[in-house]
């Protein structure tokens, strides 16, 4: 596994939290089951976490915990509790989408949570220089798979590109792929853009919280 992992005891020390808090947050669903990675070490079994996920999450919980109850936090942070009933009218007001992102999927009103996440994926790609037509491809891909957003499975959506020459013409093919990491493409193709659905979904949830 090439992911950067951090041992549970180091998480406690670095974040200054107790076992009680960690287990409580896990029970509430604030820390997804999938982040608990058990590995054999010289001293026996130990639990590790993806460093770039667990530390920011603890920070979020701690900064939001002041104003909100743990149950409210679950609504904001826990992917499986994603509000399927969300109908949001103004995606342009959400920072992960903005005016440029809204154009990728135009509706008068009533965007569902899945559509918002799809838009945020597209915007993410746009902002790193992907062409609008390709960003739209990503939006369509994620939008049809709304259910994956409700389970904290750590899925990734990516745009792959393959370029080849044919009878003097240069052809470029772009393909949208949705799946679990590690996702690989063949050697002649390249990954144009990669988004972590869980991360994007979180950004959308936080943005939704900010505008209400």
């Amino acid at each position: 596994m090439d992911e950067d992992l951090i041992a549970k005891k180091d998480v406690l020390e670095e974040a200054g939290i107790s076992y009680g808090q960690l287990y409580r947050w896990k029970r509430k669903g604030l820390i997804p089951e999938a982040w608990f990675i058990r590995k054999a070490t010289v001293t026996g079994q130990e639990t590790f976490f993806p460093r770039d996920k667990i530390l920011p999450r603890i920070e979020q919980i701690r900064s939001l915990k002041e104003e909100q109850s743990l149950d409210e936090l679950v609504q904001i942070l826990a992917p499986e509790a994603a509000p399927e009933t969300v109908k949001h009218d103004d995606p342009a007001a959400l920072s992960p989408i903005g005016t440029e992102g809204r154009k990728l999927l135009w509706k008068e009103r009533g965007y569902t949570f899945g559509e918002l996440v799809a838009l945020a994926c597209g915007t993410h790609a746009l902002r790193s220089g992907t062409r609008p037509a390709e960003a739209k491809l990503l939006v369509d891909l994620v939008r049809t798979e709304e259910t994956v957003l409700r389970t904290p499975t750590g899925m990734t959506a990516l745009l792959g590109e393959k370029a080849f020459e044919q009878e003097g013409f240069s052809v470029r093919l772009t393909l949208g792929v949705l799946g679990h990491e590690p996702l690989k493409v063949d050697r002649e193709s390249r990954v144009k853009h990669r988004v972590d659905l869980e991360k994007i979904a979180e950004q959308v949830k936080l943005a939704l919280r900010e505008v209400t």
């Binding site: 107790s18 076992y19 026996g44 079994q45």
Partner: peptide, 19 residues
């Protein structure tokens, strides 16, 4: 196998690791 807690008091317990 493993026990983890802030305040841990054990009796008559067999465990691999206690933290």
């Amino acid at each position: 196998g493993e026990i983890e807690g802030d305040n841990v008091h054990l009796e008559a317990t067999t465990a691999d690791v206690v933290r």
